[in-house]
Amino acid sequence: MGCCYSTSKRTRTPGYEEPTVLASQTPFTVSEVEALHELYKKLSNSIIEDNLIHREEFQLALFRNRNKKNLFADRIFDLFDLKRNGVIEFGEFVRSLGLFHPNAPLEDKITFAFRLYDLKQTGFIERDELKEMVLALLHESDLELSDDMIESIVDKTFSDADINGDGKIDQEEWKAFVSKHPSLIRNMTLPYLKDITLAFPSFVVRTEVEESD
């Protein structure tokens, strides 16, 4: 009995999925998934020790402040929480971060960004959503703009992106807009993910020890 408990400890964690399975479904190697598990354990036990990432833990990791409200961080959390049960499980964490891998398909990154900005999840980015996001960004930064300026920025951007002029940006229009402005999805790529095993090597080392045993 003792032998089995010692090796299956991680598999009893809620939401834990086998690294080999996750590696087969994402751009990550098995070692990288193992390294992500090290990071996940740290994030998912920072406030509530249950091996699940709660919204406050996500906020704490992003802002060093568990109570900091941020529209965009909330949207990211909601999109990572694929099962929509209020927590990010390990499999969800790895699959979602996979989109941010330098080798992930560009198409997937563009689609994720679209879903992120489609606040009301209508399948379109609407003008009032765009203005709400600009206001949220200004609120968190030191940048101050008059309402007239904000209106003009939103109008200009919207008219550039809304090619068919129906008052909303659909996925095809978004794709075309991003291809004209590739910097818009620069934050959808985390070069760091290619070096994740260097940043969190402990499990990799332990695996090698176990394998040599």
Partner: peptide
């Protein structure tokens, strides 16, 4: 950058909430 030439999505993409690299800081 002159406000009239700002791209609203460019502004938004600079949100700290969209910068996931913070997750990896020790």
């Amino acid at each position: 950058v002159a406000p009239a030439t700002m791209n609203a999505f460019e502004l938004i993409s600079k949100s700290q909430g969209l910068n996931l690299s913070s997750l990896f800081e020790k």
